[in-house]
Nucleic acid binder design. Structure first.
Lengths: 277, 277
DNA sequence: TGCTCGGTGGAATAAATATTCTATTTTGCT
DNA sequence: AGCAAAATAGAATATTTATTCCACCGAGCA
């Protein structure tokens, strides 16, 4: 626990300070710290009494915690969260409403639906991604002498995007599209890794290619939408991403974000110091 | 203006009620309604005094407005916004923080960056899209006897996704990828429309194709990132989407959402009117 | 054991925020 | 123009919320 009289003025500064003071905290103040760490988002819209009750302490204790964080009191601390909120949501909700207001099946309304679906998908990916698996996937791809990318139909744009990103970073890649109906499975050599993208109902060709690679002893990284996908049997590292759908259609926002992050991380890992080019 | 004593209990109900009472409102109450309609998001974190001041009315007037909406007062109205906030952000901000906490250049941190960028892009698209242009684009594409899709490098995944979506809906489409280095410009016939996707710095081939199409008298719909893009000179309907970038890389979340919405809207528009399959 | 001192709970107080009330103004109508 | 009804501003009040204060507890130490 460390003293410091300058109040954090941003979310990052807040978190930094929270970590700083976090060692050697007395019981009640620790409860506050833990609760706040796990529920930062609630601060903007809660009263001290509510937070204190949830953290299992007295309001006065909670205020002592605020002061320890460097603020004069709860109100001052709350201010930075409210500011943050105001910036984050300039009026997104309102704009979405406005788009929707165009009429039930107007293009704008439809766009609003897909934007909402995209946002929800991204949030859910943030919640559900397994950082361990992601790291292992990056490591494995970074160590590959060649990355083979497979993804068809709905997954094809993702595969194409990955191929583009790897290409930009001078990483050797083969995109297994079906151009000319060529089967290029024999280009998969020892030490290569297959990066397969497929969603239920899984494309036969992609699964077949993965099975072939697995049989030959090549490792597989899969981007898919369920943990019990066919890739599971192939000893693949599965990155699960579930997209929210609109009617019969499913967006790709979260999947694309995952893909680009994966690609850039691999690039950074291969050439430490440079994120890309 | 209508009387009604049941308070809305959800955001949709709130908006519905807002529209209901919106006709024939006295001056000050109208100011409240207008301000609230444009700043719904601020309610969760503001006091009556603040809102009233921003709306240019007295706090008491604002409270009368709340009551007209069916609430007992401001506090009761605020509650539904705070609940909504709590649900929307169960702990998204926290999770992002947690991802970031993995270390400065860990894959998880990178993913957090891209997810944030994706979210921001989606929100900004919601703010900036021109519903008029979108409708006109849909109409034009729906009326085309054939849709030609052009998009290379970073735009290629978008083009591929559009081609996939149109194909799913049995809409005749040609994807102008550069497979076999074939130039298929001569497939562009009268009555066809070109859907071109390109971002600065614009891909030469895409622009050339668009120029050719324009010359032949074909209409163009463009998905691009600036209103002064080369498409502007070609009398294209431009849909502008600006993606937030992370380092040297730019996500595609918002663009993809726009693309799928566009495709589905075109599909919906064609089906009812025509006997088409 | 008894003293000290940081930590704590809870009541007391201060501040802010919400709500009501009423005199006055505006609006709509004839 | 003149009247009645509705709407409004702003002060007064009630309520909620934040903050301070102080008596008490319990660990560490002579």
């Amino acid at each position: 626990m460390k003293k410091n009289n300058t109040a954090p003025d941003s979310l990052e500064a807040f978190h930094k300070r929270l970590v700083e003071i976090s060692d050697n905290l007395p019981k009640r103040l620790r409860q506050c710290a833990d609760y706040v760490a796990a529920n930062t988002d609630k601060i903007a819209i809660s009263t001290v009494a509510e937070l204190a009750a949830n953290a299992g302490v007295q309001p006065s204790a909670f205020i002592r915690f605020c002061q320890l964080m460097g603020f004069s009191g709860y109100s001052e601390m709350q201010r930075i969260f409210r500011n943050d909120y105001a910036q984050r949501w300039p009026d997104y909700a309102t704009r979405i409403e406005n788009l929707r207001a165009n009429g039930d099946d107007s293009p704008a309304t439809l766009l609003a639906e897909f934007l909402e679906a995209g946002r929800a998908s991204i949030e859910s990916l943030a919640n559900e991604i397994d950082a361990e698996d992601l790291s292992r996937a990056v490591e494995m791809l970074a160590g590959a002498s060649m990355i083979h990318i497979a993804g068809l139909s709905r997954a094809y744009p993702v595969a194409a995007y990955l191929a583009y990103a790897f290409e930009k970073m001078d990483i050797p890649t083969i995109l297994h599209d079906k151009t000319g109906n060529l089967d290029r499975r024999h280009s998969i050599l020892p030490g290569n890794v297959l990066l397969a993208i497929s969603f239920a109902p899984y494309t036969r060709e992609t699964i077949d290619l993965a099975a072939y690679a697995h049989e030959r002893g090549n490792r597989i990284v899969a981007i898919t939408d369920a943990l019990n996908s066919p890739f599971h049997r192939l000893d693949a590292i599965s990155l699960k991403v579930s997209e929210v759908d609109v009617g019969a259609f499913r967006a790709l926002s979260a999947t694309l974000s995952l893909a680009i992050a994966l690609a850039v991380a691999v690039g950074a890992r291969r050439r430490p110091g440079r994120g890309g080019k």
